[in-house]
Design a protein around this nucleic acid. Structure first.
Lengths: 219, 219
DNA sequence: CATCTGATGTTACCAGTGTCAACATTCATG
DNA sequence: CATGAATGTTGACACTGGTAACATCAGATG
């Protein structure tokens, strides 16, 4: 935040940069989506930010630290989007879930490299600090909230909320990975992505919906 | 294949190695699961295989080529497992899907780094060659086969087979990613993984099952 | 205002990496 | 046996992540 001009990075006037921390994160995000994760180098980020190759180490504990910050920002945005979907459709858990799912798939497919960073495990999980876990948990908590309310309202069924959340989270995340995974499922335009996301959401809703209220219980 | 002793790598007698190609792949798989993807270096693989740091380039077009071979082997195993699940439960599409799903989740969580390699996108998708796509497609085709048969038998519903396959594939893959993603969903023992996989499969089966036969068609 | 201190940025350097070119050795085939 | 294609080795190159020593600045303190 606190930085509007997002295209001219090298803004530099005095010896001290002023806000290197955020500038580095932005530069990393920029290069990440442009060149891919494997081609991202610390030195290039520094160069794009207009500082020497060693300056970033005053702000992040190594490359992992910088990538971690990028991932964290991503999880934060994710959590915001999910909560936004919740607030946009009060008292309509199905619409909330659909909106959250579509938003997630759309955002992730628009930012493929960042999504890979967030879930790709390029950082061994033992090294991932607590703060990142907390951010990912925030996003998870958003979906948990939606489904928990939905279950209390009798819209969703299932034995316990967590297992329902896992299923819902998993389809959406899985579809994303399939789209990103280049192999199968390769939609051309964003509209098609939305279509796919909606269909998957409807399928999982069919599996999640409470069956005690509508009178149908397959043997 | 054609190589049983999997622990003593440096087996070397003459100037020429004899079967460097497979040995390198095995060495890479070994180091991959041991040290993680980001810490995997070409030179270390070569050293473990007992050859000079430059020898691998006679067999693979760079690091990407080697990793690509590892990923390809993974997809092949995946396809075999899926087809095995199909053959193990003839005329029972639900059991086939469950078995395939559980097998996939179990294998993937037992080989987390390889799974990340396969789907993590450490290789920009433009660079992924056709052969890899073909292998991934084989695995996809296995699930397609199961669901297509199931739909023809009236067990599964849905508008078209592909969208059903995507949903099924997505839950299973998504659950895997959640388990690997370290954040939420962190089961201790393999039995718990199986449990989770089964539950997710049942949920998606509830969403996939044909509704025209049992008399329920939500408006 | 002078000065000291800590934060921030720079340069120089190191080990390690991916990759290639030149050379060495072996295998196969005439 | 000679010869060329495979295969393996050595040595180099540019680049990377990371650290240490030095330079510059902002701000508190006198």
């Amino acid at each position: 935040m606190t930085r509007s001009k997002s295209k001219s990075f090298p803004a530099r006037d005095s010896y001290h940069h002023g806000d290197l921390h955020s500038t580095l994160v932005e530069a990393a995000e920029h290069l990440l989506e442009k060149q891919g994760l494997s081609a991202l180098s610390m030195r290039e980020v520094a160069k794009l930010a207009g500082v020497s190759h060693s300056a970033p180490y005053r702000h992040f504990r190594g490359k992992a630290g910088l990538l971690e910050a990028v991932a964290q920002a991503g999880f934060n945005r994710l959590a915001v989007m999910i909560n936004g979907a919740h607030d946009a459709y009060p008292d309509d858990p199905e619409a909330q879930l659909r909106a959250a799912g579509v938003a997630y798939v759309e955002w992730a497919t628009e930012n493929p490299e960042r999504t890979h960073l967030m879930y790709g495990g390029m950082m061994k999980s033992e090294d991932v600090p607590e703060t990142l876990h907390a951010c990912a948990e925030d996003a998870y908590a958003g979906i948990f909230h939606i489904i928990d309310e939905g279950r209390q309202a009798g819209v969703f069924g299932g034995d316990d909320t967590d297992s329902v959340v896992i299923s819902a989270w998993a389809v959406v995340h899985g579809l994303t990975m399939l789209i990103l995974g280049s192999g199968k499922v390769n939609p051309a335009n964003p509209g098609e992505v939305r279509q796919l996301a909606l269909r998957v959401c409807d399928t999982i809703l069919d599996g999640i919906r409470s069956r005690t209220g509508t009178g149908d219980q397959p043997s």
